[in-house]
Amino acid sequence: FEIPDDVPLPAGWEMAKTSSGQRYFLNHIDQTTTWQDPRKAMLSQM
């Protein structure tokens, strides 16, 4: 499912887009990137 862009990312995360428009996520805390939206895990725990 798609999460609306107005749902905030967890602390330390940033959303970016590739030149082709694909979204990816940067974790500044552990210096990693992922295609997986970290908000999905956050919302599934609620």
Results as ranks from 00 to 15, higher is better:
45 Q>G: 11
36 Q>R: 13
19 S>Y: 02
26 L>Y: 11
43 L>Q: 14
39 R>D: 00
14 E>F: 04
14 E>M: 03
44 S>K: 14
45 Q>A: 11
9 L>D: 02
1 F>H: 01
5 D>F: 05
14 E>P: 00
25 F>W: 07
30 D>I: 11
44 S>G: 13
18 T>Y: 01
28 H>M: 12
22 Q>W: 04
21 G>E: 07
1 F>T: 15
32 T>G: 04
42 M>K: 09
40 K>S: 11
34 T>D: 00
26 L>E: 05
18 T>N: 04
10 P>W: 00
1 F>I: 15
11 A>I: 06
29 I>G: 13
44 S>A: 14
10 P>H: 00
15 M>F: 07
8 P>N: 04
40 K>I: 02
15 M>C: 12
23 R>V: 14
10 P>I: 00
23 R>I: 09
41 A>V: 13
24 Y>R: 02
3 I>H: 05
12 G>D: 07
16 A>E: 06
19 S>G: 12
30 D>V: 07
19 S>P: 11
42 M>N: 08
35 W>C: 07
16 A>C: 08
3 I>E: 03
27 N>V: 00
35 W>P: 08
39 R>W: 01
28 H>C: 05
42 M>S: 13
22 Q>E: 15
36 Q>F: 07
35 W>G: 05
44 S>H: 11
32 T>D: 06
37 D>R: 01
15 M>I: 10
37 D>H: 02
32 T>I: 15
28 H>Y: 06
9 L>Q: 05
43 L>D: 15
40 K>Y: 07
26 L>Q: 05
22 Q>S: 13
34 T>G: 02
18 T>C: 14
16 A>T: 10
32 T>R: 06
34 T>Q: 08
25 F>M: 02
34 T>E: 03
28 H>D: 03
20 S>P: 04
7 V>D: 10
45 Q>D: 10
25 F>A: 02
36 Q>L: 13
36 Q>C: 08
37 D>C: 00
11 A>H: 14
18 T>W: 03
17 K>S: 10
34 T>V: 02
35 W>T: 10
29 I>H: 15
40 K>W: 07
35 W>V: 05
9 L>F: 12
6 D>I: 11
43 L>T: 10
44 S>C: 11
16 A>M: 09
8 P>S: 05
24 Y>F: 07
31 Q>T: 02
1 F>M: 14
12 G>F: 07
10 P>S: 03
37 D>K: 00
26 L>P: 01
11 A>T: 08
22 Q>L: 08
42 M>H: 14
37 D>L: 01
14 E>K: 06
45 Q>Y: 05
30 D>C: 08
30 D>G: 08
12 G>L: 01
33 T>E: 03
1 F>V: 07
